[in-house]
Simulated scan of single mutants.
Amino acid sequence: MSDNIFISWSKSKSREFAFEVKNLLETLNPHLNIFMSEDNISAGEKVQEKIIQKISECDKVLLCFTRDNKKSPWLLYEAGYACGQNKMVIPLLFDEDHNWHSWIDNPMNIAREININSISFEESFINCFNLCDSVYTR
């Protein structure tokens, strides 16, 4: 059984990181079903309806946080909706910011983050997405 992953991003830096993470996850586990608005919403589709539908259908929501977008209304909306749907919400931090969640109470204070700059990044990432731990994944 494969996981359905929703990748949330906001602003250009976060978008670039989201594409990299999507490509990495698809390479490491081609059985994952990954939704990212930039790739998976066609012209003419109702963006908000599609996002709500895909969050409702997913198993995990991966939030691509940077210093530039940590107060982004869309990112927080998607995170809050996912929490309300009892989805696993995984904040992925791309910048060093020890107080990244101090500006809101929910939904981020209830979710343990993965920090790409931490020593435990590889292990956390591998475990979170049920990847096989190998030389290739590292």
Results as ranks from 00 to 15, higher is better:
S2E: 06
D3E: 13
F6H: 10
F6P: 13
I7F: 04
I7W: 11
S8K: 07
W9H: 15
K13W: 09
K13T: 09
E16F: 06
F17N: 12
A18T: 08
F19S: 05
F19I: 02
F19N: 08
E20Y: 13
V21D: 01
K22G: 00
L25A: 08
L25F: 03
L28H: 11
N29E: 10
F35L: 05
M36C: 11
S37K: 14
S37C: 11
S37G: 10
E38Q: 14
D39E: 15
D39S: 12
N40M: 09
S42P: 01
G44H: 07
E45P: 01
V47H: 12
E49L: 06
Q53F: 08
K54C: 01
E57W: 11
E57P: 05
V61Y: 06
F65T: 02
K71D: 06
K71P: 00
S72V: 03
S72G: 11
P73R: 04
L76A: 03
A79T: 09
G80M: 06
Y81P: 09
A82C: 01
G84E: 01
Q85N: 01
M88C: 08
I90D: 06
I90Y: 05
L92F: 07
L92H: 13
F94P: 01
D95G: 00
E96W: 11
E96V: 09
D97V: 01
D97W: 02
D97G: 08
D97M: 10
H98C: 06
H98E: 14
H98T: 14
N99Q: 09
N99F: 14
W100E: 03
W100C: 01
H101D: 13
S102T: 15
D105M: 05
N109E: 01
I110Y: 13
I110W: 12
E113H: 15
N115Q: 00
I116Y: 05
S118V: 02
S120Y: 04
F121I: 03
F121D: 01
E123D: 15
E123C: 11
S124H: 09
I126E: 02
N130Y: 06
C132K: 15
C132A: 11
T137Y: 09
T137N: 13
